[in-house]
Every structure is written in structure tokens, then in C-alpha cells.
């Protein structure tokens, strides 16, 4: 048997990281749109911003369960979240949408099709997110791979303000190693699968940047109410 590798996290067995991340994966949240309010772009954007804010709270709680993340300094935890938060939001929408065709599951009770995207003025953004859905659908990404690549996206979010670069590098190595070991155990038929999954990150980064830009312009217009955490992270970008 290949020599079991241990990690600097006290000898966590490689598949242990995947199972910890599966357990840490938060449940979906609900939009609970008000049926008495007539549909409009403002209503749709208000729902999306409210969902984003609540999902951000969930994602911050999730990040604290990534093996190795709590070992980082608080300042570095904040830096990674300030730079990677939109990628995490987008990835969760993408994963929820894998089972559908040309629709985005922003929440179990808030699924956007092309018409609704046009009405909300987010057609371009949603089409960009749908590109990611198509990419992951084509490679039949599994939940185990999804939870690891989401943690990698956060650890690899290229913040300009990291204080302990070596500690962040160790976190990236742990997560990268977990993905590689998962693939070598589960997908012997495709020795390049781990690389293929990591090669989706540039498109994720680009799509998240488009989302940030779009919501920053909405924020500038001042017509859509946004909660403090979402506003604060938009400004951090």
C-alpha cells in the first residue's frame, strides 16, 4: 500500500479532510420571497442581496471548520474571507444548480430562469454562472470534490494582506493534498482529474469578480436595501 501521508495538522489521514468538510457543509437557506409584493427588478435584487447576506453568515461559520483555517491568525482569516467570499457564494449556487438545466438555484425556494434573470437585470451575470454549472456538470463533479475545491478557493483567494504566508501555504497544501488523495483513490481512471478541477478556479475567480462588480453598481444606485455584512464585504473588495 502507498505510504499513508500525514499532514502538519497532527496526522489527519488524507480522506479525513474530505469527511470533515462534508460534515461542515452548511444546509441550503431559503429566500422566503413575499408573495404579496409584485415581481420587479428591485424585489428580485432585494431577495438576492438578503440571501447573500444570510449565506455569508453561514459561510463564515463553515470556514471555521476547514481543517487548518482556525490555526491561522484572525487577521489572516479575515483577509482570506474578505478576498474569497464571493467565490464561495458563487460555488454554492453552482453546486445547487447542477441538477437543473439553464436555471440557477439561488435558494431551494428561489430558482432563476432566463426570464427572471432578464427582469432582475442579472442576465449576463447568471449566464456567466451558468458557464461554471456547465463546466462542473461536464466533469460530473462530486460533492466530496465540491467541498474541497470550495475550501481551496478560499485558501487560494490571493489576498494582498496575508501576514503569515507560510501558514496559508500549509493550509493550501493540506487541501490540495486531500483533493489529490481523494482523486487517486476514487478516480484512478483519470490521473489528471485533480488538475482539471483546480483549473476551474480561474473561471470561478472571473465570475465572482463580475458578481462583485454588478452588486457594487447596484449599491451605488442605492435603490436596493443591503445588509451590513454584505455591504462591508462589497466595500472590502
Amino acid at each position: 500500500l502507498p505510504q499513508k501521508r500525514t499532514f502538519p495538522l497532527g496526522g489527519l489521514v488524507e480522506n479525513k479532510v474530505v469527511s470533515l468538510l462534508l460534515v461542515a457543509e452548511p444546509e441550503s437557506i431559503f429566500a422566503m420571497p413575499d408573495p404579496t409584493v409584485p415581481d420587479s427588478d428591485i424585489k428580485a435584487l432585494t431577495i438576492l442581496c438578503d440571501l447573500a447576506d444570510r449565506e455569508l453568515v453561514v459561510n463564515i461559520g463553515w470556514a471555521k471548520h476547514i481543517p487548518g483555517f482556525p490555526s491561522l491568525s484572525l487577521a489572516d482569516q479575515m483577509s482570506l474571507l474578505q478576498s474569497g467570499w464571493m467565490e464561495i457564494l458563487v460555488l454554492r449556487v453552482v453546486f445547487r444548480s447542477l441538477a437543473l438545466e439553464d436555471k440557477l438555484v439561488y435558494a431551494e425556494d428561489y430558482i432563476m430562469d432566463e426570464e427572471q434573470s432578464k427582469l432582475a437585470g442579472v442576465l449576463d451575470l447568471n449566464n456567466a454562472i451558468l458557464q461554471l454549472v456547465k463546466k462542473y456538470k461536464a466533469m460530473r463533479i462530486e460533492k466530496e470534490e465540491f467541498v474541497v475545491v470550495k475550501a481551496i478557493a478560499l485558501a487560494n483567494s490571493d489576498s494582498m494582506q496575508i501576514e503569515d504566508v507560510e501558514a496559508v501555504q500549509r493550509l493550501q497544501d493540506v487541501l490540495h493534498g486531500a483533493l489529490q488523495d481523494y482523486e487517486s483513490a476514487q478516480h484512478t481512471e483519470d490521473p489528471r482529474r485533480a488538475g482539471k478541477i483546480i483549473m476551474t478556479l480561474p473561471l470561478l475567480r472571473q465570475t465572482a469578480a463580475r458578481a462583485v462588480q454588478h452588486f457594487c453598481s447596484i449599491k451605488q444606485e442605492g435603490r436596493v436595501p443591503m445588509h451590513k455584512l454584505f455591504l462591508e464585504l462589497l466595500e472590502a473588495k
Binding site: V57, G61, A75, Q77, M78, S79, L229, E232, L233, A236
Partner: peptide, 28 residues
């Protein structure tokens, strides 16, 4: 300017810090 001025100024993120330091049951 002195070296620390050349460091990127970290943006205040009180909300992020609040949730990052909250215990899980508060988050949930």
C-alpha cells in the same frame, strides 16, 4: 513614507469580525 505606511491599509470589517469570533450556536 516609512515602511509601515507602504503596507496595505486593512479595511475595517466589524461585521466580519463579529461573525468570525462568534461561537457556532450564535451563528446558527
Amino acid at each position: 513614507g516609512c515602511p509601515q505606511q507602504s503596507r496595505l491599509v486593512r479595511r475595517p470589517c466589524t461585521e466580519l469580525l463579529k461573525y468570525l469570533t462568534a461561537t457556532d450556536d450564535i451563528l446558527l
